[in-house]
């Protein structure tokens, strides 16, 4: 068959540029677009509250379970274990929650609406930053519930209210930073369940092979050296010191530096991977 091109191309049309659109607007516009995307995330959470099961039930069940199981064995009594376990369980629960960000992002990206986001003249980082921002709500719920559970069970943090709030914010910030890792994994993984698998494979040993549940000096030497360099241990120690005595030690600084480093490295990687999908 012949390619029947029936008409000659229109005579030399010099494509006059259409009115140039307003410039993208830089950082301010990107921030505004991220906030709009975060609003979308909040609407979705409000629409499907059942996705908050993990951040509501897990803090309650884990706190009860671990405290009563390990309390007597590790600290002699439940009451004496609380200052150790509450910071530990707080870190473990909230950090693990960040995994959901990656799996949900992966699921979300397979939907048609993400193609529309890509076709809009918006900052490329906005859909990712918005999703991560909205998930702060999850960390807030998990943090609050764990702390309240601890208080109900008799935990009396010596650091005072401000120190406890500060510790909660620190944990939330680290969880947010870590969620960039899962956002990146979400971009490069093929399915949501593989994101779940990969991240659990990393998170499970990282949170349990730390000083979250047991004092590191009871461990065999090789394990102790791992636990001592594990960034999760530094966060747990920072939170313990904050809530216990109200002092912010160098552990806080190191944790903040580490978390910022994760964001600086992973955020560009995640955005690059996201754009490549386009």
């Amino acid at each position: 068959m012949t390619a029947a091109t029936l008409t000659t191309a229109p005579a030399a049309p010099s494509p006059t540029s259409a009115p140039v659109p307003p410039p993208a607007g830089g950082v301010a516009a990107a921030a505004r677009q991220s906030v709009a995307m975060a609003w979308r995330g909040l609407v979705k959470i409000r629409r499907t509250p059942e996705q908050l099961f993990d951040v509501t039930l897990q803090p309650i069940i884990f706190t009860l379970m671990f405290t009563y199981i390990f309390g007597g064995a590790i600290a002699g009594s439940v009451q004496d274990y609380l200052p150790t376990i509450i910071p530990g369980i707080l870190v473990q629960t909230v950090i693990t929650t960040s995994v959901v960000t990656g799996t949900q992002l992966r699921e979300d990206m397979d939907k048609g609406v993400f193609d529309r986001f890509r076709s809009l003249p918006i900052a490329r980082i906005a859909p990712l930053a918005g999703a991560l921002l909205a998930d702060s709500v999850r960390y807030l719920i998990a943090t609050t519930l764990t702390i309240v559970m601890g208080l109900i069970m008799g935990w009396r943090p010596g650091g005072g209210v401000l120190a406890v709030v500060g510790a909660g914010l620190l944990v939330m910030f680290v969880a947010w930073a870590v969620s960039w890792i899962w956002a990146f994994v979400g971009m490069i993984a093929r399915t949501a369940s593989s994101v779940q698998g990969i991240s659990m494979l990393i998170m499970f040993p990282l949170t349990f092979l730390s000083n979250a549940f047991v004092p590191a000096d009871t461990l065999p030497g090789w394990l102790r050296s791992f636990v001592q360099v594990n960034p999760v241990s530094h966060l747990v120690t920072a939170v313990r010191e904050l809530t216990g005595t109200g002092t912010a030690t160098s552990e806080v600084t190191w944790t903040l530096v580490g978390a910022a480093l994760v964001v600086v490295v992973l955020a560009p990687l995640a955005v690059r991977a996201y754009m490549r999908k386009a």
């Binding site: 677009q33 995307m37 979308r40 939907k111 048609g112 609406v113 529309r116 003249p121």
Partner: peptide, 26 residues
Amino acid sequence: VTGQYASVDEDMSATENLVLFGRLLG
């Protein structure tokens, strides 16, 4: 762009979708 791939968000109402895209566009 309108197609089966470039669609709207299933989990939001019609109004919420349009408000979202309006806000994203400034």
